[in-house]
Simulated assay, not measured.
Amino acid sequence: MSETLQELLEKSNRTLILDGPLGTELTRRGFDVDRPGWSARALVENPELVLQIHLDYVAAGANLLTANTFRTHAVNLKEWSPAQNARELTSIAVELAQQAAGNACLVCGSVSPLGDSYRPQTSLSEDWLIEQHEKMLDELTSVGVDILLVETQTTFRELKVILRLIEKYSIPTMLSVVSFDGLHLLDGTPLPDIAELVTRSKIVALGCNCVPVEIVNTVLNSLKDNQLPKIVYANSGYQNAEGTWVQSLGANLDEHTELAKSWIQHGVRILGGCCGTEVPLIAKFAEKFGEDSV
């Protein structure tokens, strides 16, 4: 794609379509991600499948593809195989996304939290967080991603570390956080505190992911004091207290799309899908909200 993210966002009537989840599609197509290494294993065991999923999102109308780097942090690979090189896996993930993107899409490098996204660790040392995230940011920038996507962030402490680190990179960065109630991060930090913090950073878009569609408008209201373009990619449901996945309105294409219309009215400029959603949702978004529909 010849245009940069900033140039695309400057088109005030343009909704950019982000892709959907890779892990969900891997599972749907028969790849077992319920093992150490999670979705990163597919980069070694079935890279052709990863490439095909990216290609399917491109065909559906996505403008932004997310490389499969959510679990290529070295610390998140250690239970799988110490022989696996995090830098090599990150490079493979980005190369596959770039191959699929061609000139049609920009490629985002996923920067995930360290550890379990739904059970945030608040006691990790700051020096360790800096070391781990700096490695990942260096790896992503060295292999040429177009955008850094700092996603699924759940703790104020880890988020502040990442925001400090991105100051040395010239790549545009988007931030997406997780909330269970639409008002707080999972560590209890009020979302307006995030909105205020981000105003002093290099972030170019702010929003949420990995949340049920029913609370997205509450999240957007909590972030309303920040004037950045908003990004949303919500789930098809939610995980209950027993750890069971419960389908919600997000599992219905028409309901999810109708809700997305209200998110766009609240400033969402980048729209995709997260856990449990599938390629047809991205196709529906592209049809309803993409460039050709403007």
Results as ranks from 00 to 15, higher is better:
253 L>P: 11
215 I>D: 12
177 V>H: 02
212 P>E: 07
289 F>V: 05
61 G>A: 14
271 L>S: 01
207 G>I: 01
271 L>T: 11
166 I>G: 09
81 S>Q: 01
257 T>I: 15
121 Q>R: 12
60 A>G: 05
287 E>T: 08
259 L>Y: 14
172 P>T: 05
24 T>D: 10
15 T>N: 15
190 P>N: 10
207 G>R: 03
208 C>A: 14
246 V>L: 01
91 S>Y: 04
128 W>L: 12
290 G>E: 09
3 E>C: 12
44 V>Q: 11
121 Q>S: 14
99 Q>T: 11
158 E>D: 03
73 H>M: 00
110 S>C: 09
125 S>I: 07
104 A>V: 13
264 I>S: 07
204 V>F: 02
91 S>C: 05
73 H>W: 01
270 I>V: 06
87 R>K: 06
12 S>F: 09
142 S>I: 08
177 V>A: 04
278 E>A: 13
125 S>K: 04
80 W>P: 03
170 S>T: 12
175 L>I: 05
282 I>T: 12
101 A>W: 07
108 C>R: 10
109 G>R: 01
125 S>N: 07
87 R>E: 03
147 I>F: 04
153 Q>R: 12
46 N>K: 13
138 D>A: 00
240 N>T: 04
91 S>Q: 05
146 D>Y: 07
269 R>Q: 01
54 H>N: 15
260 A>K: 13
200 R>W: 03
16 L>G: 11
255 E>C: 14
111 V>F: 07
53 I>T: 14
100 A>K: 10
19 D>H: 10
294 V>P: 00
136 M>Y: 08
129 L>R: 04
175 L>V: 06
